[in-house]
Simulated assay, not measured.
Amino acid sequence: MIRLAAFLCGALFGFGLLVSDMANPARVLAFLDVTGTWDPALALVMVGALIPSAAAYRWMRAREKPLLAASLHVPTHRTIDRNLIAGAAIFGVGWGLAGVCPGPAIALLGTGQPFALVFAGAMIAGMLVHGFVHRRRSAL
């Protein structure tokens, strides 16, 4: 049941990205082009997504336990450290260069576009490199 719920949530998210055209790298790059032909669509989609997200988060925090799990899994680490800043910077630079972040990249895989395949491959390679480096650092 949990896997089905996760699949349906992911499918809804991907469908929303495609319908809102947020999986289109040109749309995202136009949002980042503040000195040229700026397109505010991404900001409007983000603000629109905050409303149901905030309501769902408030509803979730009011419950003793989730519907499909034994306990809530809410992050407790609230420190802004070097790793967080470096990771956010790498994510932001990659997003800005490619015009797509991981969510839309996964949604784009369904279109079969070569760009999506290359981006997803690079994303997976980055995850593997991170895992390797993290394991090596933890071992030391």
Rank of each mutant, 00 (worst) to 15 (best):
G94I: 04
V19R: 11
F13N: 08
L128Y: 03
F91A: 02
G96T: 03
L32Y: 01
A54M: 13
L109W: 12
K65N: 10
Y57I: 13
R135C: 03
P40V: 00
A105V: 13
L109D: 10
G10P: 07
T35P: 01
L50S: 10
Y57V: 14
V28H: 00
I51Q: 02
A122R: 11
G48Q: 02
H130C: 08
A105Q: 07
A88E: 07
A5Q: 09
L12P: 02
T35I: 08
T76G: 10
A5G: 07
V28K: 00
A69G: 09
P104H: 10
A98W: 15
R136A: 15
R61E: 12
F31K: 02
A30R: 00
A107Y: 14
T79R: 15
R135W: 11
L42G: 01
S71M: 10
N24F: 03
V133T: 01
H130P: 03
M127E: 04
V34I: 05
P52D: 07
P75Y: 06
H77D: 12
P114K: 01
I124K: 03
A54H: 10
R58N: 08
G36E: 00
P102G: 11
C101E: 12
L17G: 05
H134D: 08
Y57P: 04
L18G: 13
V47T: 06
R78A: 11
G14W: 15
A105Y: 11
L4C: 06
F15A: 14
R82V: 09
L108C: 05
F132D: 02
D81S: 11
M22E: 02
L12V: 11
R61W: 09
G112L: 04
L84T: 01
I85Y: 06
L4A: 12
L140P: 09
S138N: 05
G92Y: 05
A23P: 05
I80K: 01
S20I: 03
L32H: 00
D21E: 13
A43T: 00
M22L: 08
A56T: 10
G16L: 12
A86V: 12
P102L: 14
G10M: 04
L50P: 05
A6P: 07
P66T: 11
L68H: 14
D39S: 02
A86N: 01
L29Y: 01
V93Y: 04
